[in-house]
Simulated assay, not measured.
Amino acid sequence: MKSRVWSKIDFSATGMQADYARVPYSSDISAYGWIPVPILCFNGGRGPTALFTAGTHGDEYEGQIALRNLARELSLSANLRGRVIILPALNWPAVSAGRRNSPLDGGNLNREFPGEANGGPTAMIAHYVTSELFPLVDVVIDLHSGGRSLDYLPVALGRSGRNDAEAAAILRLLKSFDAPFGAITDGAGAGAGSTLYAAAEQHGIPALTTELGFGATLSERGLRIAERGLRRVLHDYEILPTIHRIEPSSSVILKYQSPRNSIYAPCDGLFEPLAKPADEVKANQPAGRVYPLGDVAAEPIELKFPSSGLVAYRRFPTLSRTGDALFGLMSVMEDVA
C-alpha cells in the first residue's frame, strides 16, 4: 500500500532540497493537520544512495547532531557523485519532547517496522521509510545511543543478512563505519525484526545501527565516532570520494549473548553497578547490588554475571523497577574475515 506520508522533495532532481515528510495527524485542535518530519536530500547525479537517520528515539543526541553537521558540509560540496537522504529527527514528536517514545501515541519507532500506512503517527513514519525511501537507497545507517536509561559501549550493530552475499555486505559496512566495537546481532534482546535496520535487511539493503552515548546527554566521543564513521562510509562507497577520511582503527567485531545472559532488576530498588561498559567479566563475578526500595533494613540483593564476556551496556539510572535491564553481555566473534 502506498504511504499516506508525503513530501515536496523530488528525489530524482539534482542539487539540495529541504522539506518535510508530512505525517497526517488529526488532533483536537487541528482536524486536518500533519506532523513535520524534517528531510534533506543531496543529489549529485549518478552514484549510490545513502539513507542516514537519527532521532528514531528522541532522547538520543549524538546522531541528531552528527547529521545536522554533515548536512551543512554537504550543502557546500560540489563533488557528490551519488545521493544522500538525511532525516535527523525521524520521530519528530519524540525528538521535540526529548522522549524515547512518541508522546502522541506512545509508539517506539524502532519497534514499529515495517509500519502501517493507516496506523498511528509512529507506524506511518515507519511505513514511509520502508515503502518510499528503501526502494531508493543502497545503504542505510540509523544512529542511536543509550538514551536516558542505558550507558553503552560505543558500538555499531548489523544483522547477519539473509545469505552469504548480504552478510558480507553488512560486514563491509560495519568495517567502513569503524566504531571501536562492531557487533552482529538478531536483536533478540531488543526489537528483533521490528527495527529500522531489520526492515532494511528484509529489503536486501546493507544497514547498521549504533549505540554511541548514554544518559540522554551528548557524548563528545560518541559524536566524534558518528561523524568520522559517516565520512568513511561516504568516501568508501564513492558517494563523496573527496571527503576527508580518517583512517580506520580496526573495529573489534562482537556478537550479543543471549538475553538469558543479561541481568535484570529482581525487584524495585536502587541499583549499584560494579562493572562498566567494555569491561571484561567472568562467570560468577560480582556485577552489582540492588537495594530493595520498600525495605530499608533489608540486605542488598547481590548480582553476579551468569557468563563470561564483555559488558555491552549497564543501566544508567539508579532507581530501577522489576524487569529493568541492568547489564547485557557480548562475546568476541571468531574467524571474522
Score class of each variant (00 low, 15 high):
Glu299His: 00
Ala198Glu: 10
Gly323Ala: 06
Val95His: 13
Leu157Gln: 02
Leu230Arg: 03
Gln257Ala: 08
His244Phe: 12
Glu280Val: 08
Leu254Ile: 03
Ala167Met: 14
Gly182Gln: 08
Lys282Thr: 04
Ser160Gln: 08
Ala298Asp: 00
Thr322Asp: 13
Tyr237Lys: 13
Asp236Trp: 14
Ala325Cys: 05
Gly187Arg: 11
Gly107Tyr: 13
Gly58Val: 12
Val296Tyr: 13
Leu212Gly: 07
Ala283His: 08
Phe271Asp: 00
Thr122Asp: 09
Thr53Gly: 01
Ala54Val: 09
Leu240Cys: 08
Arg111Ile: 00
Ala123Trp: 06
Ala165Tyr: 09
Pro103Arg: 14
Leu174Val: 08
Arg111Tyr: 07
Gly98His: 11
Met16Gln: 01
Leu173Phe: 06
Leu157His: 05
Ser77Phe: 12
Gly55Ser: 09
Ile125Glu: 05
Ala78Ile: 07
Pro206Lys: 03
Ala199Val: 10
Asp236Gln: 15
Ser145Asp: 02
Arg148Ala: 13
Gly147Ala: 06
Leu153Thr: 01
Leu329His: 03
Phe327Arg: 03
Asn118Tyr: 13
Tyr237Cys: 10
Asn284Phe: 01
Ser145Ala: 04
Leu109Gln: 02
Tyr256Leu: 10
Leu303Pro: 02
Leu136Met: 05
Ile39Asp: 02
Ala198Ile: 12
Gly33Met: 05
Ile184Glu: 01
Pro24Ser: 13
Tyr264Met: 10
Arg314Val: 11
Thr49Val: 10
Glu227Trp: 10
Arg81Gly: 09
Ser249Cys: 10
Phe214Trp: 14
Asn110Val: 04
Gly119Tyr: 02
Glu220Met: 13
Asp268Met: 04
Tyr237His: 06
Ala265Pro: 08
Gly158Tyr: 01
Asp59Phe: 11
Leu240His: 15
Gly229Ile: 07
Gly98Glu: 04
His244Thr: 15
Asp236Tyr: 15
Asn110Gly: 00
Tyr152Gly: 00
Tyr313Ile: 06
Gly288Glu: 11
Arg231Asp: 12
Gln202Val: 06
Pro306Ala: 07
Cys267Phe: 08
Ala123Leu: 12
Tyr264Thr: 15
Leu326Ala: 05
Asp19Glu: 09
Val129Gln: 02
Ser331Asn: 09
Ala21Val: 11
Glu116Asn: 13
Arg172Gln: 11
Ala66Trp: 04
Phe327Lys: 08
Asn261Phe: 14
Ile239Gln: 14
Ser26Trp: 00
Ala94Met: 06
Val296Asp: 14
Met1Gly: 15
Asp295Val: 10
Gln64His: 04
Ser176Arg: 07
Ala71Glu: 07
Arg315Ser: 09
Val233His: 04
Thr49Pro: 00
Asn69Gly: 04
Gly119Val: 12
Pro277Asn: 01
Ala275Leu: 06
Gly189Thr: 09
Arg221Cys: 00
